[in-house]
Amino acid sequence: EQLARLKREFNENRYLTERRRQQLSSELGLNEAQIKIWFQNERA
């Protein structure tokens, strides 16, 4: 579920704002660094 949600977010926007990253962190139970790194890896 977390992965599917991250992929949906990535398809909508390849870059997250700090606020959006905080929201996802709270909703998915991941820390902000994990989300940031995931997005960086997807863009690579």
Rank of each mutant, 00 (worst) to 15 (best):
I35L: 10
L30S: 00
Q23L: 12
L30H: 01
A33C: 15
E1A: 07
A4Y: 00
A33M: 14
S26Y: 13
I37G: 07
A4H: 08
Q2R: 08
E42I: 05
I37E: 14
E32H: 02
Q23S: 07
L30Y: 03
L6K: 02
K36G: 12
A44H: 08
N11K: 12
Q34I: 15
Q23I: 13
F39A: 00
R14V: 03
I37R: 11
N41I: 09
A33R: 08
F10T: 01
W38Y: 07
N13A: 01
N13W: 04
Q2E: 06
K7F: 06
R43E: 11
E32L: 07
L30V: 06
S25H: 02
S25I: 09
S26V: 15
L16Y: 01
R14I: 08
R19G: 14
A33K: 10
F10S: 02
R19K: 14
Q2V: 14
E9H: 05
A44K: 13
N11W: 09
N13V: 04
N13F: 04
R19F: 11
L6I: 04
R8H: 12
A33V: 13
Q34Y: 15
F39M: 07
I37V: 08
Q2L: 13
Q2F: 07
E32A: 08
R43L: 14
N31M: 07
E18F: 02
Q2S: 09
R43A: 13
E9S: 04
K36W: 11
K7W: 06
L16H: 03
L6F: 00
R5N: 05
S25D: 00
R19D: 15
E9N: 02
N13Q: 02
R19S: 14
E18G: 09
R5L: 05
A33P: 01
W38V: 03
R5S: 06
W38N: 02
R21P: 02
R19H: 14
N41S: 07
T17F: 00
R5P: 00
Q40E: 15
E42D: 02
E42K: 03
L3Y: 05
G29N: 08
Y15F: 13
W38R: 03
E32N: 03
L30W: 11
S25N: 01
E18D: 14
L24Y: 01
E27F: 04
R20E: 09
E18N: 12
S26P: 01
Q34A: 13
S25V: 09
R19M: 13
L30G: 00
I37S: 13
E42T: 05
K7A: 09
Y15P: 05
R8N: 08
K7N: 05
Y15C: 14
A33Q: 13
L6H: 00
W38F: 12
E9M: 05
E12P: 00
N41M: 12
R21T: 15
E42M: 14
R8Q: 14
R19Y: 10
E12L: 08
K36F: 09
S25M: 10
F39N: 01
Q23D: 09
Y15V: 11
E27R: 01
E42A: 12
L28C: 05
G29V: 01
R21M: 15
E27M: 08
A33D: 15
E1V: 06
L28F: 02
F39C: 04
I37F: 08
A44M: 14
N13R: 06
L24M: 03
R5V: 08
I37L: 10
A33Y: 12
E42W: 13
L28H: 01
E12M: 07
Q23Y: 10
E9Y: 06
F10C: 10
F39P: 03
K36S: 15
A4N: 09
R8A: 14
E1I: 07
K36V: 15
N41E: 09
Q23V: 11
N31F: 05
F39L: 03
Q22G: 05
A44T: 08
L28A: 01
E27I: 09
E27N: 02
I37W: 13
T17I: 02
E42V: 07
R14Y: 05
L3V: 09
E12Y: 05
R43K: 09
S25L: 07
T17W: 03
E27L: 08
L30Q: 01
N13Y: 06
R19Q: 15
E9A: 13
E18P: 14
N11C: 15
R19E: 15
W38P: 02
E18R: 15
L6A: 03
W38I: 06
R21W: 13
E1H: 07
A44N: 12
S26Q: 14
N31D: 15
Q34D: 14
E12K: 14
N11Q: 14
G29Y: 01
I35W: 00
N11G: 11
Y15D: 10
L24R: 01
A33F: 11
E18I: 10
R8F: 10
I35R: 00
F39V: 00
I37H: 11
R43V: 11
I35A: 00
L30D: 00
R8P: 02
L28G: 00
F10Q: 02
T17M: 04
R43T: 07
E9W: 04
A4G: 06
R5D: 03
N11P: 02
Q34T: 13
S25C: 10
K7D: 03
A44L: 14
R8W: 09
I35K: 02
F39I: 01
L6E: 02
K7Q: 11
R19V: 15
L16R: 02
N31S: 15
R14P: 15
Q2M: 11
L24K: 01
E18Y: 05
L16D: 13
L28W: 02
I35H: 00
Y15W: 12
E32T: 07
Q34G: 01
E12C: 13
L24P: 03
R20C: 10
E27P: 01
A44V: 10
I35N: 02
R21L: 15
F10D: 02
Q40T: 07
E9F: 06
E1F: 05
Y15L: 10
R20W: 05
G29K: 03
E32W: 06
K36D: 15
Q40D: 15
L6V: 04
Q40K: 08
L6T: 02
I37M: 10
L16G: 03
I35F: 01
R20I: 12
S26A: 14
L28Y: 01
Q2Y: 06
R5G: 04
R8G: 06
